[in-house]
C-alpha cells in the first residue's frame, strides 16, 4: 500500500468576495522556520491594490448602512466559524514555526478578540457620541461614523491574531478595508479569508493581499480613495512613507504596534476610535 499523496493548497488573494490570483500571475515562496517551502503566495501588485480599493469602496455604503446590531452579529459569526476551524489554523501556525501550545493560544485569543469587538458595534455611538447642550435654541448631537476605507498593514508576528486584532476594530466602526498580509507569514491571513467568506461578511468589506511590502505599501497608502491607514509594522521607513503618502488626501494614519498580541490591552474601543469621524447635527428647536 502506498502512502497517500497530500493535496497541497494554492494560496490566492481575497478581493471583492472572490479569490483571484494576483493579476501579475507572480508568486513568491513562503518557507517554514527551517527554510522548507510551504507554499507559493501571490505577489500582488499596484493593480491588485487598486482592484481591492475599488471593491472596498463598492461595499462601503452597504456595510456602513447595516444596523450596528447586524454588524455585531456578522463579526460574531466570524468567531463562530473560526471556532469550528481551530485545528486548521493551529496547523497553519505550526507550519510557520509556532509551537503547538502557542498556536492553540493564538487561535483561541483570535476568536475571543472577535467576540470582544462584536459586542462593541452597537455601543460605540453611546460611548463616543454626545448630546451637546448648545446655548442657542437647537437640538444638537454628535455621532461617530466610519472614516471610509482603511488600509491595514499587518505585522509578521502572530500572523492570525495580529491580523484579526487590527481588522476587528476597523470593521466594528463600519469601515471597509484592504489588508496587506504579513510578508513573511501571509498564509494564515490568506486562509482566514475563507472564514470571512463563510461568515456573512459581504464581499469587498475585507480584502486581503499578499506580496512584498516595499511594493504594496506605497501603492496602498498613496491611493486617493483610501481614507485611513492602520500600520502595525514597526519600521521607521514605513512609518514615514505612510505619513507622507497620507498627506496627499489627509488620510488618518495610525500606527499600532504590540509586543505581545495576546495581551488584553489590545481589546479597547480606543483602537476603534482613530477611524471614526464625528458628525455633528444641528436642528432648530421652535414651534
Amino acid at each position: 500500500m502506498t502512502d497517500r499523496i497530500e493535496v497541497l493548497k494554492t494560496y490566492k488573494t481575497y478581493i471583492g468576495g472572490k479569490f483571484p490570483r494576483s493579476e501579475s500571475e507572480r508568486t513568491y515562496p513562503v518557507s517554514d522556520s527551517k527554510g522548507n517551502l510551504i507554499a507559493n503566495a501571490c505577489r500582488c501588485t499596484r493593480k491588485d491594490v487598486r482592484e481591492a480599493v475599488v471593491a472596498a469602496r463598492a461595499s462601503f455604503d452597504g456595510w456602513q448602512g447595516r444596523s450596528a446590531y447586524n454588524r455585531g452579529q456578522i463579526i460574531y459569526r466570524i468567531a463562530e466559524i473560526l471556532e469550528g476551524r481551530k485545528s486548521q489554523f493551529t496547523e497553519e501556525l505550526e507550519r510557520t514555526g509556532t509551537k503547538t501550545k502557542n498556536a492553540v493560544t493564538e487561535v483561541e485569543s483570535a476568536i475571543d478578540r472577535l467576540i470582544y469587538y462584536s459586542g462593541w458595534t452597537d455601543k460605540i455611538s453611546q460611548v463616543f457620541g454626545t448630546i451637546n447642550p448648545v446655548a442657542s435654541s437647537h437640538f444638537n448631537f454628535s455621532v461617530p461614523e466610519p472614516s471610509g476605507i482603511v488600509g491595514i498593514i499587518a505585522p509578521d508576528d502572530s500572523p492570525l491574531l495580529s491580523t484579526i486584532s487590527l481588522l476587528a476594530p476597523v470593521l466594528c466602526g463600519g469601515n471597509t478595508c484592504v489588508i496587506i498580509a504579513s510578508e513573511k507569514n501571509p498564509l494564515p491571513a490568506v486562509s482566514f479569508s475563507e472564514v470571512l467568506h463563510a461568515s456573512d461578511v459581504p464581499g469587498g468589506v475585507v480584502n486581503i493581499l499578499s506580496g512584498y511590502r516595499n511594493e504594496l505599501v506605497d501603492s496602498l497608502t498613496s491611493h486617493m480613495d483610501v481614507n485611513g491607514i492602520l500600520n502595525a509594522v514597526n519600521d521607521e521607513n514605513i512609518v514615514k512613507l505612510t505619513e507622507e503618502n497620507g498627506s496627499i488626501n489627509i488620510k488618518r494614519v495610525y500606527h499600532y504596534t504590540a509586543e505581545n498580541w495576546l495581551d488584553e490591552i489590545h481589546e479597547s474601543p480606543y483602537i476603534i476610535h482613530p477611524f471614526l469621524e464625528i458628525k455633528t447635527t444641528w436642528h432648530p428647536v421652535s414651534s
Partner: peptide, 17 residues
C-alpha cells in the same frame, strides 16, 4: 461631512464638535 445643519446654518457652540 463633519457638520450637518438642518433647517439652519453656520451655528457654532463650544459644546458642539
Amino acid at each position: 461631512s463633519g457638520v450637518m445643519w438642518a433647517n439652519t446654518y453656520n451655528k457654532f457652540d463650544p459644546t458642539a464638535p
